[in-house]
């Protein structure tokens, strides 16, 4: 009996950890959730004097579609990202740390408004944070 108890515990634990976790894509609300995040973020950018000037010549419809594709793709959703690399797309803009902070702050505000769980927010931030080196000071 003594040797069996830990075994049962071990089995229970593995059973629990194998419970299918909803993907980040699902936690963000699937396609409508990501559409809402993208639109919310675009609205925030439009009102943010710190960064809006970067988008003066941007085709907003295209940017919106590509950003949604990318968020869907990196969060494990059923989308292909068809845009340029982060490095290519942001070269020539000289995006600074302050600009990056501003965008992340806007994204956080939007996710808070949409009542996305802290855990899902952090999972998404973990995927976006490393893009810093490709996006800034180019």
């Amino acid at each position: 009996m003594r040797t069996i108890t830990p075994l049962v515990f071990a089995l229970l634990l593995t059973a629990c950890s194998q419970h299918p976790q909803p993907s980040l894509y699902q936690q963000l609300g699937g396609e409508p959730g990501i559409a809402a995040i993208t639109d919310g973020l675009l609205q925030k950018i439009e009102q943010d004097q710190r960064i809006v000037h970067h988008f003066a010549d941007t085709d907003i419809a295209r940017f919106r579609r590509l950003l949604a594709e990318q968020l869907c793709n990196i969060s494990g959703g059923p989308c292909e990202y068809t845009g340029g690399t982060m490095q290519e797309s942001h070269t020539g803009f000289n995006i600074t740390l302050a600009h990056y902070d501003a965008l992340v702050e806007n994204l956080i505000d939007v996710m808070q408004q949409q009542q996305i769980s802290i855990s899902a927010q952090n999972q998404l931030l973990a995927l976006l944070a490393p893009m810093y080196k490709d996006i800034t000071y180019r």
């Binding site: 802290i118 855990s119 952090n122 999972q123 973990a126 944070a129």
Partner: peptide
């Protein structure tokens, strides 16, 4: 470090 302890940073 993001998403480390019960989804917290």
């Amino acid at each position: 470090l993001f998403d480390q302890v019960a989804g917290r940073n």
